[in-house]
């Protein structure tokens, strides 16, 4: 929108309106945040009030549990999420580049099949996927879960974003390099991939969020014996602390901090990447 057309007065009113809307929208977040620092007695009696007295007991209790639930969950989820993002980015970018630059009947069919992957409820493929992983000898392992993440419905989304973004890149850009004798792979790596930054940020944000927040996939594919992920850990704690809101808010707060920081670090990059992600191919 134009940056000149507003008078100072209406600009202030607009900002106020925006702030009020966001405040109302964020009320549930406020509730979650203030109750992290309260004792249970105050949570029950004054759920909306500011903490008084302020306590960090809920956080300390969460971090010093005898079963190390949070630490194990944070470690496992960090490993799984990073590995998934690091692998899916080059895989999806390559497939997308192939689809966009080869442009023949095969790539069209491949893209269609890949896109349909977004519609499959993952619950449908869990049990047979375990059999496949068993066959490959990586059932119930971190590599098994990461490969399942990279190859599954997440890949469809990542390819969708990359294809859309690549279509907006001028074609002559890399054709010129081709004339210079570079191979397609070299062009992808040195010319195209650096230009894909917004799309890569989009993919990294969403795949990272989804992997971190995934409840059901790790329960099936990894199982409990390899240790719990952070989101299934919250679910476990919910059983134990279902009447101890302070503990639950504390654990959820701690479990959400890393992913919030991750989002804040990447957010500048990503909106433009998402938007060109509508596949016109």
């Amino acid at each position: 929108m134009s940056r000149t057309r507003e008078t100072t007065l209406s600009r202030r009113t607009r900002l106020l309106l925006a702030a009020i809307s966001v405040a109302a929208f964020s009320l549930p977040l406020y509730i979650a945040a203030v109750n992290v620092f309260k004792f249970n007695t105050q949570i029950t009696r004054q759920p909306l009030a500011l903490p008084s007295p302020v306590t960090t007991q809920n956080l300390v209790d969460g971090l010093t549990r005898s079963d190390n639930l949070l630490w194990i969950g944070l470690r496992n989820s960090t490993i799984i999420s990073i590995a998934t993002v690091v692998l899916i980015v080059p895989v999806a970018a390559t497939v997308a580049y192939w689809v966009v630059r080869r442009r023949n009947r095969i790539t069209k069919i491949a893209l269609m099949v890949l896109m349909s992957g977004m519609m499959i409820p993952p619950h449908v493929v869990f049990i047979p996927a375990v059999e496949v992983l068993e066959f490959l000898g990586i059932a119930r392992t971190f590599p098994g879960l990461v490969l399942f993440n990279v190859g599954g419905g997440f890949l469809s989304f990542a390819v969708f974003v990359y294809v859309g973004f690549m279509l907006t890149l001028p074609k002559n850009l890399d054709e010129a390099a081709l004339v210079d004798g570079a191979t397609r792979m070299q062009m992808l790596m040195y010319v195209v991939f650096p230009l894909l930054r917004p799309a890569t940020a989009t993919v990294a944000i969403f795949i990272g969020l989804w992997t971190w927040n995934d409840l059901v996939t790790p329960l099936f594919i990894l199982g409990p014996s390899q240790g719990i992920t952070i989101t299934s850990g919250i679910f476990v704690a919910l059983g134990q602390y279902n009447n101890d809101y302070g503990q639950m808010f504390g654990i959820m707060f701690l479990a959400s901090i890393p992913i919030l920081i991750y989002y804040l670090l990447l957010q500048k990059q990503f909106t433009s990447g998402l938007l060109s992600g509508s596949s016109k191919g």
């Binding site: 869990f126 375990v130 059999e131 068993e134 329960l219 099936f220 679910f235 476990v236 059983g239 279902n242």
Partner: peptide, 19 residues
């Protein structure tokens, strides 16, 4: 530890997933 689902259903899930 069973997540806060039906314990028996969760055990069946584990058996179906070979664990």
């Amino acid at each position: 530890v069973t997540p806060d689902l039906d314990r028996t259903a969760y055990a069946k899930q584990l058996q179906a997933a070979g664990q």
